[in-house]
Amino acid sequence: MSATSPATTGVRRWEKDPILTVEHLTMRFGGLVAVGDLSFDVGRGDITALIGPNGAGKTTVFNCVTGFYKPTEGRIVMRHGPGANDALVERVTQSAAQHAEAGGSSVFLLERMPDHLISNKACVARTFQNIRLFGGMTVLENLLVAQHNSLMLASKFTFGGIFGIPSYRRAENQAREKAVYWLEHVDLIDRADDPAADLPYGDQRRLEIARAMCTGPQLLCLDEPAAGLNPRESAELNELLQFIRAEHGTSVLLIEHDMGVVMEISDHVVVLDYGEKISDGSAEEVRNDPKVIAAYLGVDDEAEIDIPEVRADISHGKQPAAGEAGGDSAAGGGQ
């Protein structure tokens, strides 16, 4: 694998203190290799973008990280607490355990955990490319369902809750306050009692982010959060993500096609093409990486021939649909 991160020397910020490490991740569906030997880091407190042309395997990576797919090969490590914690990671990997704790920091091997524990214990929350809200439940209920595990504990697994013990009532009030807090920050407080299916598209996107945040995540995975948003809504989304990071210290991993969003807010961009990483670095570096320009942002024909890597790719028959990518660059990359 040839990850060409041009310029800069030394250890990168996200390598020093990664919250999530994806190592040699491979996902095969029958004969199809959707993701092949992919490794990258997500820095703690960073906004990391995973980009690539359609079908590059971005959502597959997401599904592996959040436990919806079991990866064919590879290791996905989630860390609570600072530092890379390599010794602890090795110890868990050698044992049969899913996670281990030492000195206030814990390590989770996500490829070994079922999806609901990844959200519950490893504190990884996600949204979906095609919005998955509880349409027949109100906006407020959606946010209360997201706090299921803490409420379940408070209700003593229902046995206490059914008799209305005071500690459950307190917990429920706290849960409502948390929901109200997030409703205010995604500007949906006036629609709290409306069914989620009734909201306009942009509101649904924001509600899904609020719902994910109500689980109290350390890593928030957003699958194309700006898809279908108008420029004003995109700008609001940027602000929301900046707020989430600044106020809650939540690291964000996002898949995005909207280059405006990606370039403006990402600290770190990983570029995928055909399930392999073709570039990894800061937004600026990736933007100027000729492989990325060729594969994703698109270049005109003469320029393509002049880039050696692109020529190599063409000779390997791996040239992506330039016309489609070119359209993307005209909309997003040209700013």
């Binding site: 959040t66 436990g67 919806f68 999806d115 609901h116 524990l117 990844i118 959200s119 519950n120 929350a125 996600r126 979906f128 998955r132 809200l133 509880f134 349409g135 027949g136 439940m137 209920e141 369902v145 997201a146 299921h148 595990n149 719902r211 994910a212 689980t215």
Partner: peptide
Amino acid sequence: EALREDEIACRSLG
């Protein structure tokens, strides 16, 4: 009720 609405979303919420 959330399960009735969307099982996958339920799993993503832990």
